[in-house]
């Protein structure tokens, strides 16, 4: 589904990603872990086409299409979704209006008819229930005045509405208390299927207790320095990242 080959990306001439290789297949859940500043969020930004970052080398194929040639909106409509680490507040644009426009843009892209008002409201309620989001939030401006937990649940709500093939959860666990974490994780798990894939970006093992990954990668200094099964997350939790950094210096791991 997703194939990243030798991806290099920079911000203001400063290279952040230094040759990422990553393949994600249908139905898989990948976790990307790593210390602060290793390039995790840059990777997610580059994937969804944030113009702040410049891709200097490499290729990203999404369902065989060259992702780097697509606008951010087309990437979304092709089935890519990012749950933002810091969801943006948009004063004056109601959640309902925002979602209706987004859903209809997706439908137009696929050559489908626009969604009817009643179907849309039904869909909203159904998906809100998934992350236990209060219907009152629908009338409010996007993320404006939402608590930290509500913002993150709102991201997963949008994911549920748009039904992406590949979702990237960028530190969705940060700023969440245990209860909110459980709600968010259970929402994500309900959306999991053999047809779609998820990349979970996180610092901590905590979220991975709830969303079980198939594969864990460690990103350090702009490169993936280790890839293993779920047990790697536990190992990192007890040992930290230092041993990997050391090993990377000595080029000891593959």
């Amino acid at each position: 589904m997703l194939k990243i080959t030798n991806l290099h990306a920079a911000i203001n001439e400063k290279e952040i990603l230094k040759g990422i290789n990553l393949s994600v297949n249908k139905g898989e859940v990948h976790a990307i872990m790593g210390p602060n500043g290793s390039g995790k969020s840059t990777l997610s930004s580059v994937l969804v086409g944030n113009p702040t970052f410049k891709v200097t080398k490499g290729e990203i194929l999404f369902n065989g299409k060259n992702l780097l040639n697509l606008s951010p909106e087309d990437r979304s409509r092709e089935g890519l979704f990012l749950s933002f680490q810091y969801p943006v507040e948009i004063p004056g644009v109601s959640m309902t209006n925002f979602m209706r426009v987004a859903i209809n843009e997706h439908r137009k892209y696929k050559g489908l008819e626009l969604i009817s008002a009643s179907d849309f409201l039904k869909l909203m309620r159904e998906k809100q229930a998934l992350v236990e989001l209060d219907n009152k939030l629908a009338g409010r401006s996007v993320n404006e005045g939402f608590s930290g937990g509500e913002k993150k649940r709102n991201e997963i709500f949008q994911m549920a509405m748009l039904e992406p093939q590949l979702s990237i959860l960028d530190e969705t666990d940060s700023g969440l208390d245990i209860d909110a974490l459980r709600i968010v994780a259970s929402g994500v798990n309900k959306l999991r299927s053999t047809e779609n894939s998820i990349i979970v970006i996180t610092h901590y093992q905590r979220l991975l207790d709830y969303i079980k990954p198939d594969i864990v990668h460690v990103l350090y200094n702009g490169k993936i320095i280790k890839t293993a099964g779920q047990e790697l997350a536990l190992e990192l939790e007890s040992k930290g990242y230092e041993w990997l950094k050391e090993a990377d210096k000595n080029n000891g791991i593959k």
Partner: peptide
């Protein structure tokens, strides 16, 4: 940031601008 956030949900840039202008 708001424009990009909307684009990342599939809303075209010019449409996102229109929505923000109306909101303004």
């Amino acid at each position: 940031n708001a424009l990009f956030y909307m684009q990342s949900r599939g809303i075209p840039y010019h449409e996102a601008r229109t929505l923000l202008s109306i909101a303004f």
